[in-house]
Design a protein around this nucleic acid. Sequence first.
DNA 1: TTGAAAGCGCTAACAG
DNA 2: CTGTTAGCGCTTTCAA
Lengths: 328, 328
Amino acid sequence: MATIYDVARLAQVSPATVSRVFNGTSVSAEKVAAVRRAAEQLRFTPNRTARNLRTQSSEVIGLVIPDIENPYFTEMARGVEDVASGAGYSVVLCNSDSQPEKEATYLQIAVSEHMSGVIIAPASERTRLDGILDTGRPVVAVDRHTVYDIDGVVMANREAGASATEGLLEAGYRRIAYIGGPEGIDTAAERAAGWRAALAAGAPDIASDELLRFANFRVDGGRAAMEELLALPERPDAVVAGNNLIGVGAIQVLTEHGLTPPEVGVAVIGSLPFTTLSPTAVTVVRLPAREMGVSAARMLLERIGGDSRPSRTVVLPSEVLPASAVRS
Amino acid sequence: MATIYDVARLAQVSPATVSRVFNGTSVSAEKVAAVRRAAEQLRFTPNRTARNLRTQSSEVIGLVIPDIENPYFTEMARGVEDVASGAGYSVVLCNSDSQPEKEATYLQIAVSEHMSGVIIAPASERTRLDGILDTGRPVVAVDRHTVYDIDGVVMANREAGASATEGLLEAGYRRIAYIGGPEGIDTAAERAAGWRAALAAGAPDIASDELLRFANFRVDGGRAAMEELLALPERPDAVVAGNNLIGVGAIQVLTEHGLTPPEVGVAVIGSLPFTTLSPTAVTVVRLPAREMGVSAARMLLERIGGDSRPSRTVVLPSEVLPASAVRS
DNA sequence: TTGAAAGCGCTAACAG
DNA sequence: CTGTTAGCGCTTTCAA
C-alpha cells in the first residue's frame, strides 16, 4: 500500500500537502492536480488506522442490538445504516444477545476502537453506560429507556398496547389476553399498561390479571404463553402479542389448535414481515422501526458534530393496520 | 485514557514490559502483578488503533451480505459471529444491498481499516475481489461462487432443488412450477436445474419451460411470479420456491386467492423462520445457514492464522422437512 | 499557501 | 527477562 510519502515524492510536494488535499484544506489548484494524479497512479488510499490514531476518532459508529435475528431490529439497522453511510460513516453491528456481558464487551470495543458514537438498544435497564459516557462519546438509546441522561428514540408503547386492544374490542372480542415481554423491560410494561387500560374501559367485567402472561421476546416465548392461555378453564377469545415474534409464536399455536385467526382474534404490536397469513386476519399495530433507526442516527450524528443541547427523547407513534375480518 | 506509559511509570517498569504483559510474552511474575495492579488502578485499556497501526492488522473481520433483512443471511451472520467472537475477533456486518458499488466500498473499508479478513456473500458473479486479494487478506465466499481461487462454502443447490420437487411429486402433485432467483446468480440456476431434472424424471409429460419463473430473491419477487403462474391457462398444482422470501411471497398470493397450501402444493428451499402456517402444510428444504457461517468463519480464521493449503470449497447438504399433509 | 517536524499509543528488534 | 529505540501513516502546529 502506498502512503502519503510515496504520493508526496511522486507529486513533488510535502506529505503535509498531500494530507491537506485529502482533507479539503487550502492548497493551490496546480498542486491539488499533481497530488491527485500521483495518488491515482499509485492507487493510494489513506490509511484510516493511522488517521484515527492521530485524530483520536474514526468515522465508525457502533450499533448494539439484542437480537440480530429479529426483523424489528434489522429493519432499524437499515435505517441507521442508510443515514450513517450517507454521511460517510460506517456502521459496526453488534449482537448483544440480550446479555449484559456481551453488551459491555462491545461497548469496550467501541471505546478502544475510537468509534465516534454508539446507538444501543439496551438489553435491560441495568445496562451500564458509564464507561463509554465517561470518554465523552455520544450514545443514543433506542427502543428502550436507560437511567442515563442521553438522547433516546422510543415507541409510543402504551398507545400501541391500547390501540391493539381497541382494535380487537371493535371487532367484537371481549376476553382479550395479553402476552408481553419480560417483566424487567420497560417497553413490555408500557404496552401491557395500555392493554390493561383499554380492556378496563371496553370490557370492565373481564378480570385482566389471569389473562396476562410474561414471555421472552422470541417465538418460543409466544408459543409457551399461548399454550398456557389455551389451557385456561375459561379461554380468551383474543390475544394481544407484545412484539412481532411473540405474535408469530401465538399464531403458530393457535393454528396448530385449529383456531386460525380470526376465529381467535389476534393483534400484534410490531410488523409481521414474513407472514403467510391473509393480511386481513390479524390486527397489526405497526411500529416504525426504520424511522427509529433514522432518527437515532441523525441525533447521534448531530452530537458527533458537536451539538450540546440538552438531551432529547423522541417518541414515535404507532400505526394501526386494522384487520378487515371481524369476529364471525 | 491511560496509556502504557502511564502504567509503566506507576508500575516502575518499561512500556515494553507493559506491552508484553498484555500480549502474553514472558515476563517475571512479580512484574506481571505490578503491571496488572497499575493497569487496574488507572483503568487502562490498550488502544487498539495504535496497536493496529503498528501491527498492520486488527482483530476484526468483515462480513458482507446482500440483504440484512433476509433471515437466511442473519442466521448465517450469527454463525460467523459465534465463531469469531469465541476467537476474540469482532465482526463488522456490512449490507451491500446486492449493489456491486456498495460492495466495493465496504471491501475498500476493510482494507483501509486493516481488517484481518472478509467473508462475503457476493452480490453477483461479477463481484471484484482483486483489490482486497492483492493486499494478501484472506477472503471466504459464502452462498455463491466467485471466479477467484478462494475458499468457499455453498449449499448443495441442485440437490435442494431436486429434493423440493421430489417431495411435491411424492405428495401427489405433478404440474410443479418453479420460481427462482435472478438468472445471473449461480445458486438460482443450480436449484432450477435440480427442479427441472426431478420433474423430468417424475412427471415427464409436463412441459417445464412455461412453469419456470425468474424473480428477485425477495417477497415481492415471489408474489409477482406467483400471480403470473396463477394467470396461466393451465395452472400449476404446486410450486417450488427458490428461496425463503420467494416462498413467503408465493404463499401470500396463494392464500389471497383462497388456495392455501396444501390445496396448492408448496415447497420452499430455505427455512420459513416466522411462518404462521401449520408446519405440515409446506415442504421445507432446510438450508443450514448457521452452519455455513460457522464453516466460513473457521476457514477464514485458519487462513488468518497462516494456513496456506490450496483453497477448498465446502458444500453443505440440505435437509428435507417433508410436509405431512398430502394432496387432498 | 507550503514544508518541517513532532507526535498519536503501541510493538518489535536489538542489546544487555 | 527487561529496557531502549525506532517507527507504523497520518495530521497539525509552527514558521517561512
